[in-house]
Amino acid sequence: MNIFRLAGDMTHLFSVLVLLLKIHTIKSCAGISLKTQELYALVFTTRYLDIFTDFISLYNTVMKLIFLGSSFSIVWYIRRHKIVRRSYDKDQDTFRHYFLVIPCLVLAVFINHKFTFKEVMWTFSLYLEAVAILPQLVLLQRTRNIDNLTGQYVFLLGAYRALYILNWIYRHFTEPHYVHWITWIAGVVQTLLYADFFYYYFQSWKNNEKLQLPA
């Protein structure tokens, strides 16, 4: 464990807590894409298949349970909670899941480190996580008004993977033959997808004006 990875995990944890806090306190999911949240629940499910078979550390297991629990409870809130669901904008959140799930699944079957079910599922979760934010970014561009919490949520989500890239660079130099190009490429693609959001986020923060994404 190095500082970059710890910072990345804490940023990731904080992003899901910010979202849960927003939904739980103001009982609203305005501006939040249910599609993206469902994709994240799928990412964590396929990523943590080994949660009960391979024990790595208490920290690792606890964090996996938190990410699984928070992503499914966010989906539950938006789908089932009688007040929150009213603020879900299903007419705008129309991104098709399978446009992302199918290509990632096909890619994982053909490009992986080992052709076993768990390894293919794990690789699938890496590819899917890289693109899971797309429905959310599309929704933000459609609805145009981004409230602070949603903006912070997306920013923290992008920042966590950028910190993971620093972690991979650090591990590359400190650990022998630590090269996993699939993880690196998926992580870089994921961070690049946030790049334009980061640009507009910093512009709005610097000019101290409301965050607006170009249509």
């Binding site: 990875r5 790595i56 550390s57 690792n60 964090m63 080992k114 390894e119 794990w122 996993h180």
Partner: peptide, 10 residues
């Protein structure tokens, strides 16, 4: 093994 390298990450 190859795959092992990342399994300690989240």
């Amino acid at each position: 093994s190859q795959g092992q390298g990342h399994k300690d990450e989240l």
